[in-house]
């Protein structure tokens, strides 16, 4: 089972190598990938150097070009695919049917992974992407229960990668327009959710802090209450007479407990979310997962996550809380 780590810059990539990543996924510094944040990601030159460094350590590098190209951006998105091929990445992560078709036709030997943004949640959908675009691997959306993942894995025509840890999208990825409804920019179109440029914080005299996204009140915190980033699905809203986290509370996905089941199901790779995270975060999270995966592979029947590992991951999580997310029916 392969450990797939994020890297938002060359330092993070080096840290991921040192911390035991088998594979590192990256993006270019523009809207062609789903973590298009200011100051993040790689120029082609930086990526070339990082690929050399990773390959020197026997670590693979993937490039995510996993947003959707619109007509005015097509040449730019296509050129990102061309760059991936020219730079010698070990695979390209795509979601757009147009780009998948282009990549399959132009670079048949460049391995294609279906991004989580491609929203393939069934064997039939995987067969579609495999038969028509020759994908080697698919990243499964974070909407499936463990039993559903196991069922899909039993018949999947491609390698499967699942999310192990990090920020939790509670909506089917690639099919969530909440961010563009509120701001005009979405993961599909702009590579960003609840983008920072639309965030505003207001503090009133009594210390109440309000977070807004393009003017919409996402949450309000009493003086001294810990305030989180206004990701709009994690805000507090009012439905009928109840005000609470209507969709989801701030929390992170953590599947350390499920490693043996995922391994036995034949999952090829565990992905850590967080190309926007700091090198320090990546060092800690990758180290925990490296050790956990190694223990699981050595003796899956004896595997149990160590309390210290879980505590370290919780401390790094949104709201200091973790969840099994959709893997557990009770969350759904």
């Amino acid at each position: 089972m392969e450990l797939v780590c994020p890297a938002g810059n060359a330092t993070a990539l080096r840290v991921a190598i040192e911390s035991g990543a088998d594979t590192i996924y990256t993006g270019l510094s523009d809207a062609t990938n789903a973590r298009h944040f200011p100051g993040l990601n790689f120029s082609p030159d930086q990526l070339a150097q990082s690929i050399t460094e990773a390959h020197g350590h026997g670590v693979r590098v993937l490039l995510a070009v996993n947003t959707y190209a619109q007509p005015q951006g097509w040449d730019h998105w296509r050129s990102a695919v061309d760059q991936a091929a020219a730079l010698g990445v070990d695979g390209i992560i795509l979601a757009d049917i147009g780009l998948l078709e282009y990549a399959a036709r132009t670079y048949p030997d460049l391995p294609r992974h279906l991004s989580v943004q491609g929203s393939a949640t069934s064997v039939e959908a995987l067969r579609f992407y495999h038969e028509y675009f020759g994908i080697r691997r698919a990243v499964l959306p974070r909407v499936l229960s463990l039993a559903q993942v196991q069922q899909i894995a039993a018949d999947a025509p491609v390698e499967l990668e699942v999310f192990g840890f990090g920020s939790l999208c509670i909506m089917a990825e690639g099919r969530c327009l909440l961010s563009s409804y509120a701001t005009g920019e979405s993961p599909n179109t702009a590579g960003a959710c609840s983008p920072a440029g639309h965030v505003r914080w207001d503090e009133t005299a009594d210390g109440t802090l309000s977070s807004r996204l393009n003017g919409v009140l996402i949450d309000r915190f009493a003086a001294g209450e810990k305030a989180g980033y206004p990701t709009l699905c994690k805000g507090r809203f009012t439905v009928a007479d109840r005000t609470d986290h209507t969709l989801e509370a701030p929390t992170s996905l953590n599947t350390l407990d499920l490693l043996p089941e995922l391994h036995r199901a034949g999952i090829t790779a565990i992905k850590l979310e967080g190309r926007q995270r700091s090198p320090g975060y990546i060092r800690q999270v990758a180290a925990v997962w490296r050790q956990a995966i190694d223990r699981c592979l050595t003796a899956p029947d004896a595997y149990a996550p160590e309390p210290g590992e879980k505590a370290r991951l919780s401390a790094l999580s949104e709201g200091s809380q973790t969840t099994l997310g959709a893997y557990s029916r009770s969350w759904q």
Partner: peptide, 21 residues
């Protein structure tokens, strides 16, 4: 009304404190 998002979680059930199943 625009369909904006789809989830494994049922928000109506969650609002009523009911498990999805």
């Amino acid at each position: 009304r625009l369909p904006l998002a789809w989830s494994a979680r049922c928000f109506t059930a969650r609002h009523h404190d009911l498990p999805k199943d």
